[in-house]
Write a protein that binds this DNA or RNA. Structure first.
Lengths: 187, 187
DNA sequence: TACCTCCATGTCAGTGACTGACATCGACGC
DNA sequence: GCGTCGATGTCAGTCACTGACATGGAGGTA
C-alpha cells in the first residue's frame, strides 16, 4: 500500500461536486474541498489550475473520444457523418454517468463564472474536432462549420438528456438532434 | 466643479489598457491601475466587477448599437440582411477607435483569461442579436443561426481590420466577409 | 540489508483580487 | 442655511492561488 490513499483526483472531484451542490459554488472554499478529500489546499492546486477546473476535468476525456472517433471514421465519409458518429461516441461516454452529469450541470447552471468556463470548454472541443477533420483532409471552412454545428447539436441533445426523465439514450438524442439540423439546412 | 475629477471610468479604462499593454495583464495590480487614474482600488471595483471587465466595458455599447440596428431595419427585410446592416453599424462604431481597438486586442491576445472573457462577451452579443431578431418576429432557429453566423462574420472582419494596415474600413470588411459567407452557403 | 532517488503530498509564508462597513464632503434641491 | 444624495475614500478581512522547502514510503540498486 502506498503512503497515500490512491485516486486523489477522483476524491477531489467527488468532494467538490458534493459541496458545490450542497452549498453553492461560491460558498465553498478550496480548503473545504481538500479537507473533505483528506488532502490539503495546496494539493488541490497541484491537480487543478483553479477552483472551477475541478468540475471540467472530464472534458479532456470527451475531447480524446471525439478526436479518436473522427480519426477512425471510414475513408471518404462526408464530414457531417464523421462528426455525427463522433458525437454519438461522446454521448455513449456520458450515458453511463447520467446522474453525475445531471448534478454537475445543475451546479454549472447556478453560477455564471462556471458557465463562462463551460463555454470555453465547448469552444475547445469544437477546435479539437476542427483540427481532427482537417487531419482527414477536410478543408476550411467546411471543417470549422461541421465541427461547430456538431458541438451545437451536442449541446441541444445534452440539454434534453439532462432535462428529461425519459428513456432515450444520449447517443439516440444526438442522432435525433442531428437529423433536425439536417432537416433545417435542407430547406 | 464637482468634488471629484469627472469621467472616472474613462480614466480607469485608459490607465488599465496602458498598463496592461506595457507590462502584461498579470503583472499589473488593480491598485496600480487605480493609482494611475487618481483613484483607489476600492473605486475600481465599484465600476468594474473584476480586473478583466475594465477591458470589456465597451461591449455594452456595441450590444446597444446592434440591437437598435436590428430593431430599426425595414419591415420585411430578410434576417440575413438585417444582421448584415447591424454588423455594419457596429463596425462603424469601432471604425473611429482603430488604434484603441488594436491595443486592446493585443492585450487580449496575450492572455488566456482575457480570451475567455472575450468569448463570453461575443456569445452575449449573439444572444442579444438573437432576441432582437425574435422581437421582429423571426422564429427560431433562424434567429439564432443568423445571429451566430453574423457574429462569426464580424470576428473574421474584425481580425482582418486589426491585422491589416490597409485602407479598408471595418464596415466594408464586414460586408466583404458577409458576402464570402453568402457565397459559401450558396453552394 | 543498506542506501538512494523519486515523487506525491504536506507545511508555511506570502501576494493580490475582491468585499463589507462605515466615513467624508461637494452638489443640489428645498 | 439645511438635509439628502451619491461618488469616493479608508480599513479590515477573506480566500484564491503561488513559491520554497520538508517529509517519508515505494521501488530500484549495490
Amino acid at each position: 500500500m502506498g503512503r497515500w490513499e490512491p485516486n486523489a483526483r477522483g476524491r477531489l472531484e467527488e468532494a467538490a461536486l458534493a459541496l458545490y451542490g450542497e452549498r453553492g459554488y461560491e460558498q465553498v472554499t478550496v480548503a473545504e474541498i481538500a479537507a473533505r478529500a483528506g488532502l490539503t489546499e495546496r494539493t488541490f492546486f497541484r491537480h487543478y489550475s483553479d477552483k472551477r477546473e475541478v468540475l471540467f476535468a472530464g472534458s479532456s476525456l470527451l475531447r480524446e473520444v471525439l478526436v479518436k472517433a473522427v480519426a477512425e471514421a471510414p475513408d471518404g465519409a462526408p464530414p457531417v457523418d464523421v462528426v455525427g458518429a463522433a458525437l454519438a461516441a461522446a454521448g455513449a461516454v456520458l450515458e453511463e454517468r447520467r446522474e453525475l452529469a445531471r448534478a454537475r450541470q445543475a451546479v454549472i447552471d447556478a453560477n455564471p463564472s462556471l458557465q463562462e468556463r463551460e463555454v470555453v470548454k465547448l469552444a475547445t472541443l469544437a477546435t479539437a474536432v476542427t483540427e481532427a477533420l482537417r487531419d482527414r483532409g477536410i478543408p476550411e471552412p467546411a471543417a470549422s462549420l461541421a465541427a461547430q454545428s456538431g458541438i451545437a447539436v451536442f449541446r441541444v441533445a445534452f440539454e434534453r438528456w439532462i432535462r428529461e426523465t425519459g428513456q432515450r439514450s444520449l447517443p439516440d438524442l444526438v442522432r435525433e438532434s442531428f437529423d433536425e439540423l439536417r432537416t433545417l439546412t435542407a430547406t
